[in-house]
């Protein structure tokens, strides 16, 4: 039988990671506006608190206070289910990410990962592919043509880009020989990061991550100039908030996954010397800080691209996915296979 003492560390870790994810998502909204302001040579939000630091809290309160509107002709159950699926799926992916090396507290060693499953990458892939139902169900249940168009665009876009993402991941698995995220990170000890072995795979993965997270230049499902608000046209109050939040959580998690898969996760050059110097408590925390710094850089990169590159046209999006990325992914796969065969 499982006792409370065995489960408690996992529960604490779950709560900490949940809180961290929410906090990062909350402040990503603020960071997005600040980055946009910086890129466009403006000041950005600066009224709530020093330097506008409380702006996300004000936005959150506003979301809760707004009137909640459910369209009369919509399917009410599915209308509420849509945003719920979107945010649940995006929160579920953080479970398998190894946030840091094993930490030793009070004479016991705890892993800084909620659960290490044998097929970690595939789990992430499955949850992401299910998350699309949030957008599709929400868009359809709204009973609005713009929402429906947004939902349909979202589904075809995600399916197209999932293929190239899968090809990038398969090439990575051929190099690492394992599907477990923890083992993949352990293999990248020090500076042996996978980006050195899979540069093309990383670029494929990066582009697909943009598409899967519905970020500009791939935010066709919520294209304002054509579809009013896309799949969330009919949504108001916190249900809209959930959709927007889910997007920022997706951005955070995909940044963390990219750092984990290609940029060594919590590994950094010279980590052994540092760990010996600071001991088994501070060392893992530094590892976590390193992973967090890499993740923050990728979040910044997401925003940087959003305010630099304009949105694709729909046919350009499909051309890039099917005629650009998939052949590139297959070539990368063949090249990786040949290299693995030759060197091992």
């Amino acid at each position: 039988m499982v006792t409370l003492a065995q489960v408690l560390p996992a529960i604490i870790l779950i709560v900490v990671i949940f809180a961290l994810t929410m906090l990062v998502a909350l402040y990503s909204t603020f960071a997005e506006r600040k980055v946009a302001a910086f890129i466009q040579d403006r000041v950005g939000p600066n009224r709530a608190g020093p330097g506008g630091i409380f702006q996300p809290l004000a936005d959150g309160v506003k979301f809760f206070m707004k009137e909640e509107v459910i369209p009369v002709l919509s399917n009410k159950f599915l209308f509420i289910l849509g945003p719920s699926i979107a945010i649940t799926a995006s929160l579920m992916t953080g479970v398998v990410v190894p946030w840091g090396p094993d930490i030793t507290l009070f004479g016991k060693t705890y892993p800084l990962q909620i659960v290490d499953i044998e097929i970690g990458i595939l789990y992430v892939f499955a949850v992401v592919s299910v998350g699309i139902y949030g957008i599709m169900i929400g868009g359809w249940a709204s009973n609005n043509k713009f929402s429906l168009m947004g939902a349909i665009r979202a589904s075809s876009q995600v399916i197209s880009y999932e293929l190239s993402m899968g090809l990038a991941i398969i090439a990575l698995i051929m190099v690492t020989g394992t599907l477990s995220l923890r083992e993949i990170v352990e293999q990248q000890h020090g500076w042996h990061w996978n980006i050195l072995y899979q540069p093309v795979g990383f670029i494929l993965f990066l582009v697909c991550a943009f598409a899967e997270a519905n970020r500009t230049p791939f935010d066709l499902p919520e294209c304002e100039t054509e579809l009013v608000g896309g799949y969330h046209t009919e949504y108001s109050s916190m249900k809209l908030g959930f959709y927007l939040f889910a997007e920022y959580i997706n951005m955070f998690i995909s940044s963390a996954i990219m750092s984990t898969l290609y940029f060594g996760g919590y590994n950094y050059p010279g980590m052994d010397a540092v760990n010996e110097f600071v001991g088994p408590v501070i060392g893992p925390l530094i590892g976590f800080a390193v992973l967090f710094a890499k993740t923050c850089f990728f979040i910044f990169f997401f925003m940087w691209v959003r305010w630099t590159i304009p949105r694709f046209r729909y046919d350009q999006l499909m051309n890039l996915g099917w005629k650009g990325l998939i052949p590139l992914g297959i070539l990368n796969l063949i090249a990786t296979g040949a290299a693995v065969l030759y060197f091992k």
């Binding site: 892939f125 992401v128 299910v130 139902y133 599709m136 359809w140 399916i159």
Partner: peptide, 10 residues
């Protein structure tokens, strides 16, 4: 669930 049914729904 993630690919074929999404196409059906589509």
């Amino acid at each position: 669930a993630g690919a074929i049914m999404v196409l059906f729904l589509f």
